[in-house]
Amino acid sequence: MITVESLTKHYGGFTAVDDVSFTAATGRVTGFLGPNGAGKSTTMRVMVGLTRPTHGSVTIGGERYGDLGNPGLEVGVLLDASAQHAGRTGREILTVAARTMGLPVSRVPETLARVGLTESEAGRRVRHYSLGMRQRLGIATALIGDPHVLILDEPANGLDPAGIRWMRDLLRGFADDGGTVLLSSHLLHEIEVVADDLVVIGQGRIVAQGTKADLLASTGTLVRTPSVADLARALHEHHIVTHPTDGGLRAETEPGVVGQLALHAGVPLTELRAAEGAGLEEMFLQLTADTARETDAHEGAAA
């Protein structure tokens, strides 16, 4: 589990991250979503001790990253796939990582195979790698220590559709096996297909967070109950379409109707509210548009 508490980072007069708090839960994929320059990378750099926060803290499984004995065996990190010595071969970069962690070098070919880099590709110098190959090598570096947490900054960049599919399955499997995954992206769709939880950031501040199901539910009612099946049956008898969400249902009707039917069916509710999820995409577009406008304005001023 990753816990970010009241994290703030100033660079001179510029506030890159402004009082950010969230958790990435164990067994789940948490998507960290925001336009370019929103503060995602800075937050992730603070997580792994590369950048000192101005205020606040990050803990991983209750410990500061810098206090982990051999962090590579606990947290797999990929911040920038291009940040490698261009003159090393892919195999050598992975070997250096394995040696640093104290792992047997037999892990190197295993891990290369796991991320789909061939022997001949691994023998090439990283200077000649495509971005997709660099991403695979970066993911290999993150995975080789068999960690229980993954922190990946824009890992899908440069991957082809098959690669994105592979990445999605890999992260899903990692979380299903009890790992914690935090991945960032500036593309809503990319995150939507794999994340369980979403944290949306814009201009250094968190603008939305919650389960993907809650945030993306477009219309209708969100209802939670310990007796999901009973409630679904009651709603279906009245021809109300339902969609399962985490611990509850999204029903395509008004909250009042759901409440009335639940009362008749004798189903206890733990939560009942209007779904406001349609807002997410709009909000994200708004965030992106704001950033884009600023960029245009800067470019306009420069020209």
Partner: peptide, 25 residues
């Protein structure tokens, strides 16, 4: 017996990817 669905945020951790303590390098 009433079986409550497990809260979504606290799944039982399967065997793999368990937190562990590592020794300094």
């Amino acid at each position: 017996t009433t079986t409550l669905p497990r809260p979504a945020t606290e799944p039982v951790t399967p065997a793999r990817h368990r937190p562990r303590t590592t020794r300094p390098i």
